[in-house]
């Protein structure tokens, strides 16, 4: 019997080409990071960990890596703390101004990063905090928490509010019903939202570049200035480290919530 797939072989081939286009750069950068010598020749002449060692030996990269990890480690949990109650209010309550609040909370998502960067630069110049990790954390939290709100709102929409009623009916207070029944089921949303914010905070360039200087930089900003000044694969090594992190995160997502469920919360 002739199969009744929806797409023709030509379409499948086109899709495969597009997928190759998406994956190839990632593959090449890995090859480049392990390549012995400044230029990549195919096939590679030899493999080395030299560029990884180099990455960790450069003090500025070490400082930037540390700064980025600190920033993300603060921004991600802080965003979740802001987002969980907000998502509960948006999904579970009907109140005057709900649509407005919802739209305002989501508005940072449509503002170009450069504009957000300039805004927070203006604010920190005005307030007098100057440039540094604190303004970066504040700016990134304000910018990124809506990602977490979105994931949690999607998650909450999928939960049956009657489960909370069942818990109340069995003697749980409003708070206990949330803690024992709703919160455990928000795990996918917390994970998805937390990962989005974490990755956004580690990877953000357009806002951070306005709030960093020669003394305090984050990883993407440092990588950017390194690429301008040097022509060697040290940044490729950094890229491989970041990609490994995202592979680990995707495995984690798949184990804990499943890829399909994760996409519903995007």
């Amino acid at each position: 019997m002739k199969s009744l797939t929806s797409y023709s072989p030509a379409v499948a081939a086109l899709a495969a080409l597009v997928m190759a286009f998406i994956l190839l750069p990632v593959a090449f950068i890995a090859l480049y990071a392990f390549n012995d010598g400044g230029y990549l020749v195919l096939p590679p002449k030899g493999l080395t960990l030299h560029w990884f060692v180099n990455f960790f030996e450069i003090a500025r990269f070490r400082a930037a890596l540390q700064a980025s990890l600190v920033v993300s480690a603060v921004v991600a949990p802080l965003s979740l703390l802001i987002s969980v109650p907000a998502a509960v209010a948006i999904v579970r309550y009907r109140f005057p101004g709900r649509d407005l609040v919802n739209a305002l909370i989501m508005s940072p998502l449509v503002v170009p990063g450069v504009v957000i960067g300039i805004s927070f630069l203006s604010l920190s110049a005005r307030v007098g905090t100057g440039i540094g990790l604190l303004p970066i954390m504040v700016a990134l939290t304000c910018f990124a928490f809506p990602f977490a709100v979105r994931a949690l709102v999607a998650n909450l929409h999928g939960l049956d509010p009657r489960l909370e009623e069942a818990a109340r009916n069995l003697g749980a207070s409003r708070w206990k019903a949330f803690l024992f029944v709703t919160l455990p089921q928000l795990r996918p949303g917390l994970l998805a939202g937390g990962i989005f914010v974490f990755v956004e905070a580690i990877d953000n360039f357009s806002i951070a570049v306005f709030l960093t200087n020669s003394r305090t930089t984050t990883l993407p900003v440092e990588a950017f200035s390194y690429i301008r000044d040097f022509d060697d694969p040290t940044v490729a090594a950094m890229a491989v480290l970041l990609m490994s992190l995202s592979v680990v995160l995707v495995f984690l997502i798949d184990r804990l919530v499943g890829l399909d469920r994760f996409l519903d919360l995007k």
Binding site: D160, R162, L163, E165, A166, A167, R168, N169, L170, G171, A172, S173, R174, A177, V181, P184, Q185
Partner: peptide
């Protein structure tokens, strides 16, 4: 409040806690 009423409800879809 609902939690202090000692009424036990069987919900239409049973509302069992999936976790």
């Amino acid at each position: 409040p609902p939690e202090r009423r000692s009424t036990a409800m069987l919900f239409q879809n049973y509302s069992l806690f999936p976790h």
